[in-house]
Design a protein around this nucleic acid. Structure first.
Lengths: 164, 164
DNA sequence: GTCCGTTTACTCGGATAGTCGCTGTCCGAGTTGTTAGGG
DNA sequence: CCCTAACAACTCGGACAGCGACTATCCGAGTAAACGGAC
C-alpha cells in the first residue's frame, strides 16, 4: 500500500484554487512557490488533473489554471484517481485455477473470496474519499487562509533579478 | 495506490493452512506447487508472515509451516500488514508550513485537513479488512476444497529423483 | 533388545541481481497581449 | 484617430535521466529424524 506524494500536492493546489474567486487563473509557478514545491515536477500532476477535467488550463499570457467544475462537484476521489490512476490496488491473478490444487472452471463461477474481500475494502476506501468534496474542505478551513492573491498583486515586481 | 501481489499469495496460503487439521505442517514447496507459484520468492512472504506471528515455522525433516494462532484470531488485515508493512499510505509532508504561503505554527495545532481525510479513508479500509478473519473465509468456501493433504500422504515417494 | 553417538538429509532464513514505476528535470508547441505601421 | 498585421513574451504540454521498491533467485545455517554400533 503506497500512495504517490503527488496526491497531496494536487489536493492542496485544488483547495487553494477553490479559495480564490471564480474565473481567476493561478500560474503554475505561483502554486509551486506558494507551497514550496518543485515547479517542474508539479506540472506533471497539474497536467494529469487537467486531463481528468478537474482543472482547466489556459495558455498564453494571463493564463494559468482554474477549477474545471464547481468546488462542490469535485470530490477528493476525483483528485486521487486523476493523479494515481483508477486501477484497483488488488488484481486477482486467479491462482486458484493454477498449480496442482487447481479448481475446475465451473467451481470458479463466483469471484475469488480473497479478491472479494479486497474489493470490498477498496470500495469502502473510495466511498470515504468520494464523500468529501473540495467545497467541504474549504468550508472547514480554520480561519482565513486566502493565501494567494494578497502578496503578489500589490508587488508586481517581487523579485526582478534577485540582486536588488 | 498499489498493492503487492505477495498479499494474494500469503492470503491463499494462510487459508489453505487453515483448511488443514491443526498441528499439521505444510512444506514451502508444497504450498508453492499447489498454487503454481515460484517457491523461492514465496519464501520471502512466508518469512514475513512468520515474523508477524501469523505463521509458525518448523525447521528440519517433517517440518514446514502451520498457523501461529487460531483461524478466528487471524484477520485479513494481519496478513496484509505483515507482507506490505504497517506504514500508512499517505504521509503528510506539512506543505502548509512551507513556501510563501506558509502558515504560522500556532495555526497548525490541528492536523492538516487533507491528511485527516486520507487517514479517515485509510481507517475505513483497514476496518473492512480487520472485520474479516481467516475462519470466515474458510467457512464461506464454496464446497470442499481441502486440496492439500490428499495427494501427498498416500504417495510418500512422489518424485524421488525425477527420473524413475 | 536397548541406548547413544554420528551421520545424513531436509527444512527455513538471509544475502544477492534484475526490472518496473515514481521522482525530478528540461526544452519545444501554442496562444495571446502588445506594438508598430499604414490608411 | 482607427484598423491591421507582425512581433514577442509568456503559458502549458510532452519527452528525457535518476532512484527506490518490488520481483525473482540462490546458497548457507540450523535442526530433527534416521541409522549403525556398542553395551
Amino acid at each position: 500500500v503506497k500512495l504517490s506524494q503527488g496526491v497531496e500536492w494536487g489536493l492542496h493546489c485544488v483547495v487553494l484554487l477553490a479559495c480564490m474567486p471564480r474565473e481567476t487563473t493561478a500560474r503554475r509557478v505561483e502554486l509551486a512557490e506558494h507551497h514550496g514545491l518543485p515547479e517542474a515536477y508539479l506540472a506533471k500532476h497539474l497536467h494529469a488533473l487537467t486531463r481528468a477535467g478537474v482543472l482547466h488550463a489556459v495558455s498564453g499570457p494571463k493564463g494559468g489554471y482554474r477549477l474545471g467544475r464547481a468546488p462542490q462537484d469535485v470530490t477528493v476521489l476525483d483528485v486521487v484517481e486523476a493523479i494515481d490512476g483508477t486501477s484497483q490496488p488488488f488484481i486477482c491473478q486467479e491462482i486458484r485455477q493454477r498449480g496442482t490444487g487447481a479448481l475446475a472452471p465451473d467451481q470458479c463461477r463466483r469471484p475469488c473470496l480473497v479478491s472479494s474481500v479486497m474489493s470490498q475494502a477498496d470500495r469502502a476506501w473510495r466511498d470515504a474519499l468520494r464523500a468529501v468534496t473540495i467545497a467541504d474542505l474549504v468550508s472547514r478551513l480554520p480561519a482565513s487562509i486566502p493565501g494567494l492573491g494578497q502578496a503578489s498583486p500589490p508587488a508586481p515586481q517581487d523579485e526582478p533579478h534577485r540582486n536588488q
